[in-house]
Design a protein around this nucleic acid. Structure first.
Lengths: 190, 190
DNA sequence: CTGCAACGAGACTGTTTCGTAGCGAAACTA
DNA sequence: TAGTTTCGCTACGAAACAGTCTCGTTGCAG
């Protein structure tokens, strides 16, 4: 992928991605047509096809470029603080109105677009790894049993926030995140 | 909605819904075109338009007809048994391969189809009510504080199962459901 | 067995969409 | 400033798609 990227081509590419993202957020995947993206971005269709070979290829890129990173917490302040800040950051990230409209589209497209599925899986495992590091802190501090299953815990902690952002009533995600962590820690405090 | 429904019209309607469901499962919302549904069902397009006025109307109906019910547990055996069986049933239901492909489509379409959003919300609140009844058992048994927030708990319990079924690795949902209930109950066992 | 309502087949219209191509203008490079 | 990319604009073709309509056929209740 280390192509020679002209500085000009980069600008048009950014414009296209921005416009396509907005269309995806406002009208769902069906709204992201080549003509609509071209019109909304002010970039010609022919230019769009100089960046991606098909519409689907562009759509995958749109999602990929919008996947947010979750800030990693400072491990020096101990397990509970680390977990709380990490999950709080996750909640804030997921609560972003733009991202929370992209997620369902991503989940749906995942079924029929293998490339997208791979990206989602990779992201998930990256985030599970960060969580693993935090859980190790808890094990070291004797607050968690060493036998704990990271995959299960990942579902247990991320699930509620994810679920609430998808089908949720007006629940505050940060509040929910605190509650989830509360219950998780309390459940291992014998 | 209490129309005079001919027995013959009912058959063609069922055939259309079955075919449309299969298309939705296998190809996503984009695959559910009027022509495709007509071809796959062996029912003429004109007949399809005698049942629904637009394609979207049909699509909403397809989702609606596929929303599963979760068996309610017998409350006489106490809180923990009731919660365990209810969540177990929920996990089994969500794990159904057909339904687990419809869900993401539903979540995605929800954004742009208000009718569908209403159906999803209604279903969610119905399920939250059933959970409420079970939680009340726990409160009566003194296993849960009376101040508990049903909405939060709903997210806490359903979230992980839902999340795992959407982006999950090969986790067994029933096993996850047990783990979630374990942690939830343990967290309130002071 | 008769009459009506529902049906199948498919032609047809108008629109949308993807993807391609040609050409003149603007932008970068030397 | 001269030359080479890269671009925007526009038109185009082919296919998919939603929705309508006609006409001849079939199931079914009375």
């Amino acid at each position: 992928m280390t192509k020679p990227i002209s500085p000009r081509a980069l600008r048009s590419r950014e414009k296209l991605l921005r416009a396509a993202t907005e269309l995806l957020v406002e009208s769902g995947p069906r709204g992201v047509t080549v003509d609509a993206v071209s019109d909304a971005s002010g970039v010609a269709k022919s230019t769009l096809y100089r960046h991606w070979q098909t519409r689907d290829e562009m759509l995958v890129d749109v999602v990929r470029c919008n996947i947010p990173d979750i800030d990693e917490p400072d491990p020096s302040r101990g397990f509970e603080v680390a977990l709380r800040t990490y999950m709080g950051n996750a909640a804030t990230t997921i609560a972003d109105p733009q991202w929370s409209r992209i997620v369902p589209a991503m989940m749906s497209l995942r079924t029929t677009m293998p490339d997208l599925a791979a990206i989602v899986d990779e992201d998930r495992s990256a985030k599970a790894n960060k969580l693993q590091a935090i859980l190790d802190l808890g094990i070291a501090e004797g607050l968690l049993p060493a036998s704990i299953d990271t995959d299960m815990v990942s579902n247990l902690l991320f699930g509620p926030i994810f679920f609430s952002s998808l089908v949720g009533q007006s629940t505050e995600l940060e509040k929910l995140s605190d509650y989830v962590v509360d219950r998780f820690i309390a459940s291992y405090a014998t």
